[in-house]
Each structure stands twice: as structure tokens, then as C-alpha cells.
Design a protein around this nucleic acid. Structure first.
Lengths: 279, 279
DNA sequence: TAGTGGTCTAGACCACCGT
DNA sequence: CGGTGGTCTAGACCACTAA
């Protein structure tokens, strides 16, 4: 394999890569030899281009993206450089590498990473045993359009009073109600969402959002607190009023650090716990 | 045994690296050409060797380890292979790379990563603002040798009734008691630990353990629950009895996945919250 | 200026997957 | 079998730090 004409051409997409410290950056003895203020290595620029393609939906969740060799040709860089860009994206969970098959866009549909964001596990879980083998059931109490409260607006980065979709639901594990949460989705994207659709859908909410509302949750930040159950919460979760509950506020982000969901959940931690790893 | 070193010399440590799929491994026509059951790439073996050196204390926390080129020579591999090993160790927090200076063994003494394991932050913390700029104070209530209860023994992987060191303390943020925790340390290593030493030490507990007890905490697992304060807990944390508190059980590991500390903490989350990131 | 980690390239071969 | 990601090497040059 040789191929590849002597030089560049980069007949495809954006060949706007700034030659920044690239060894092969050709004869460029002029261009300031040092003191680069906003220096970004090539592989990060490549990473940016790939991210943009993901944002734009050029490659959709679950799909196969072009091979490393292919991408290297398109971008006019070496395979090693593409590899480093893809490595980082895979580490961030945006892409999924599978030896012998190719690189795929991550999706909430895969069996392996289902409930990736739900850290609640039954107490009986053994040391290594990760997920919950319990039967999970849902119960949707609300699904409606409401005006964003000051707090919801602030979290989602929109104006107070703007229309948002609110979902209120109950999660049952092994028949017992364990999670009660309010979910807020910004903008008109989720206008078509109905309680019926929620009821009929099998699988995680994020998988539904991905498939039918073109919104993929990429990462999230959570704030945890302990609170005492009020009368309504106690009734829904079948605990005594005043019983301690774990309050979990979650802000989820889509591609490009775009806030795409705000969630306020109450967990009954009598037989379950929130599991976390510190590094 | 076989080969190795047509060149090199590798005068130093273990040159027992099994030529596994190495392109240059050559001269090894015997060894099953494929179908390798427990296949481990070279860089992982290197990683193991470096980890072993860390465990053995060849390089201590805060110290500079040999340069990549140096390590490559010692191990008889290319710099790229060493680099990949070090990359992973740095990603896991065992090593810290600093361009232009070298690679250092991570330590709990650095200003940058102090309180790496304490995820409690004041509610007022802005979006990006990470750590707590609050004045922190401690109050040590106990420091004694006790026999491990069944639970403590199970967590620490020792026998029930074995001697462990117990520390009971209160953490005060901005003058208010916010954390009340019991800490259990296994084995005879911490026999010399006294309440006086704890009182006089400035800096994180883990920094003390590292400096004076040759125990570095590398990673930890936490289980979170919401519980109602009992009378004693309420008094110490200055809340009403029955008030919801965040119960945080932490199992910390030293090098080699060795359980080295079990901790049971109660957090008052009225003005603070536990912060977490999901990827 | 010397030394370190950081980036980039080019090419080889291995492990794994589907056909 | 051909194609994909995974590993390994060798060498070049860049960015940063400290002496």
C-alpha cells in the first residue's frame, strides 16, 4: 500500500486544519516558530471535526462511522492521528470501538450500556456485580407542556416562562416503587411526546429521545442530597412521612455541552443504594 | 526462556516480558502462533511492572520516576510502548505527567488534587467552580484500637475480631459541623497513629497516611443512602432528630486493589451537596 | 541549552470479525 | 479471505521547564 499521491489534495471535507506543530507541516520555516497562543494539536482538531459530524447527524447513534484509514485519507493526516482523536471520543463515551468490526456511534439502545446513568443498585448486589437483574417497571403520572419555573429555566439555560415538556413518573423495582421523578425537556423538540408513547415504549427513556427526538444525552452532572419525604412523596413511594429519601438532581447534556434535560428524582434507599466510583 | 536481547542488555529489572504479538518479537517461531488464551499486550506488561515498582515503593508519592526514554531502555521496548503504559497509569491517577518536567508519582499532598475523594461542595458553588473555598476544620473524637465487627471485617477482607484502628471525627465547614464519620484502618500498620498526631497534622488524612504510614489510597467505591438522624447523630451535627442525612460508605483501595480503609460518614446536606459526574 | 513529555508520521504485523 | 481496530517500532520535530 502506497498510494496517496505525493501531496495533499484532501479532496473531501474541510481541509482547513491549521498546521500546528505538525512534523510534516511541510516547508514552513517562516510562520512563527514558537509562541503559539491558542495552540491546538492536530488530533484535537480532527476530534472537533468528528464531533461536529456527530452533532450534525452525519453519523447517527448506532451507525458505523468510516474506518480509521478512511478518515485519515479524508482529513489528510496519518492514521495514528485519527486514532488518537477517536480514542478520546471513545473514552468520553461518544464512540464505541469494536475490534474487527469498526467504530460505532454510541447509543442508549445497546444492551451493554443500558441505564448507564442510573446508579441505583439493589443492596444485595455482590462486589463485582454491576447492574440490576431486577424486573423494572414504570408508571407515568404526567406528560404535559408547562412554563419553565425560574429554577428549571436556569438549569436548562432558557428564559423563565418558556415552554418545556414535563414528565412525572414512578420507577418500580421488583414491584416496589423506588424512584419518583420529574423530568423537564426544553424547547419545541419534544412537543410530540405523549403519555401514550411513553407507556408503549420499551427501553430506557434516553433511547426513546435518541430514536424519535434526535436528542442524544452524552453526559450528565448530578447533585445529591438527603431530604425528608413530604406527605405526597411518602404516599407515592410507600414510606412514612418524614422518611429520609435521596434527592438526585440531574442535568444532562447533549452534543456540544448543550443542556438537554433537567431531572429531579427522589430515591427510596431502604433496599437500594447509589453506587459511585472515585478515582 | 528464550531469547530477548539480541541487543539491548536490559541490565536492569525483569526482562521476563513474554513476546506477545510484538511485531519485533521475532525469533520465536515456536510459541503458538495464534490462539493465545491469556494474551496481554506488551504495554500492559510494562504497566504491570511499573505498578509493581509503585507498590514496592521503588518510587514514592511525589517523586519523579525515570524518563520515558530511560524506562524504554530498561524494559527493552520502544518509547511508544512505555508511553502507552504510562498514559493508562496517568489516566487512572497513579502517575502525573508534567510536560517539560517529567512523570511523578501521584500524591495526596498536591494542592491541586487535595480532597480528591470528598465530593461534598457548598450549594453556592457556581457551575464550573469545583472545590470548596470554605475554611475547613476538624475535630477528632476518637482514635483507638478495636476489634473488627463482622461488617468491618467483611469490607476490609480480614477476619472478624482482628484488630483495627478506628477514628471518629467531625468535619466543620465554615464553622458548622457537616460530616461525622467513622474510619477503620486494617492491620498493624496504623498502630502508631494517635489522636494527638491527628490533631497536629495539617492537610488531608490521606496525605498523613501516605507520609507516615506508607499507605496510599488509589481509588475508592462509595455507597450512598439517605437515613434519618438518630439522637446522637443529630446532636453532633446540630440537626433535629429524624432529619435526613446522607450516609456515605466508602471502601478505599491501595495499590493492587488492596482494601485499605473503610469509612462510614454522615453528611448534613442542608447547605451542601454531593457532586457527581456521569459519563 | 539540555532534557522531558507531547505530537505526528510511516510502516509492519497481530487479533478479531464477517463473508 | 479481506477489512477493521489493536499493538509495536523508529524517527522526527514541537512545546515546555529548569538550569
Amino acid at each position: 500500500m502506497h498510494d496517496m499521491m505525493a501531496t495533499r489534495a484532501s479532496p473531501d471535507t474541510a481541509s482547513e486544519l491549521q498546521a500546528a506543530g505538525a512534523a510534516h507541516a511541510s516547508a514552513n520555516p517562516s510562520a512563527s516558530p514558537s509562541a503559539n497562543p491558542s495552540f491546538s494539536p492536530l488530533y484535537r482538531q480532527i476530534k472537533g471535526l468528528i464531533t461536529r459530524s456527530l452533532q450534525q447527524g452525519d453519523w447517527k447513534p448506532g451507525e458505523l462511522i468510516p474506518s480509521e484509514a478512511d478518515l485519515a485519507r479524508r482529513f489528510g493526516v496519518s492514521q495514528g492521528t485519527v486514532r488518537k482523536a477517536v480514542d478520546e471520543l471513545a473514552a468520553e463515551g461518544l464512540l464505541l470501538r469494536r475490534q474487527g468490526r469498526g467504530t460505532f456511534v454510541s447509543t442508549h439502545h445497546e444492551e451493554r450500556v443500558k441505564f448507564r446513568f442510573l446508579r441505583l443498585v439493589p443492596d444485595a448486589t455482590a462486589e463485582g456485580g454491576r447492574p440490576l437483574p431486577q424486573p423494572m417497571d414504570r408508571q407515568f403520572l404526567e406528560c404535559r407542556r408547562v412554563r419553565a419555573s425560574q429554577e428549571v429555566a436556569r438549569m436548562l439555560g432558557i428564559k423563565t416562562g418558556e415552554s418545556v415538556t414535563q414528565i412525572r413518573r414512578l420507577l418500580l423495582l421488583a414491584g416496589e416503587p423506588v424512584v419518583y421523578e420529574d423530568i423537564y425537556l426544553p424547547g419545541p423538540a419534544f412537543r410530540a411526546l405523549t403519555a401514550e408513547r411513553l407507556e408503549s415504549y420499551r427501553g430506557p427513556l434516553y433511547a426513546l429521545f435518541e430514536s424519535e427526538f434526535a436528542t442524544r444525552m452524552v453526559r450528565a452532572e448530578e447533585k445529591l442530597r438527603a431530604v425528608n419525604a413530604d406527605a405526597q412523596e411518602a404516599q407515592l413511594l410507600r414510606v412514612r412521612e418524614g422518611e429520609a429519601l435521596l434527592l438526585v438532581e440531574r442535568l444532562s447534556f447533549s452534543y456540544g455541552e448543550l443542556p438537554a434535560e433537567y431531572r429531579r428524582g427522589l430515591y427510596n434507599t431502604r433496599h437500594h443504594h447509589y453506587r459511585n466510583e472515585l478515582n
